[in-house]
Design a protein around this nucleic acid. Structure first.
Length: 127
DNA sequence: GCGCCCGTCGCGG
DNA sequence: CCGCGACGGGCGC
């Protein structure tokens, strides 16, 4: 099995009848997979909802839904997940919307935010 | 099962 | 810049 095959199997990504790829992970397993990917983002770097979704062959809004219910903010660094275009996106802790905190955390990690996060701060290869 | 929620995205105007 | 619809997964009923 080549690298790609191993990668797809590792994330339980299978081919659907229509030929598209999709992870068969659901519920807690899916959430754990998302968390694990987030842990791979180094401090001072960011990634996007769609990048996570792309890796898992899932939908960006699914990722957003998972992150909103993140029970371990800071431990699971969901503040490092932003919009693909560099906008910060939302940030919720225990039901409270705290976008300013997200911004502060990113600045503390050395990320320059000039209206948007510059492309250079995105991780190129998460895996 | 269905319907609604979501911290998205890409496209068109 | 804005509006809109697609998409996928969780969750409550």
């Amino acid at each position: 099995m080549n690298y790609k095959g191993a990668f797809l199997r590792f994330l339980c990504i299978e081919e659907k009848p229509d030929g598209t790829l999709k992870t068969s992970l659901t519920g807690e397993c899916f959430r754990e997979a998302v968390k694990t990917l987030l842990m791979l983002i180094p401090p001072g770097r960011v990634t996007s909802y769609s990048k996570i979704a792309e890796i898992l062959r899932a939908h960006p809004r699914s990722i957003a839904r998972i992150l909103k219910n993140n029970k371990e903010p800071l431990i699971i660094p969901c503040h490092r997940v932003i919009h693909k275009n560099g906008e910060l996106g939302g940030y919720t802790i225990k039901g409270r919307s705290l976008p300013d905190l997200k911004k502060k955390l990113l600045i503390l990690e050395g990320i320059k935010i000039d209206n948007r996060v510059l492309k250079q701060f995105f991780v190129n290869n998460l895996l």
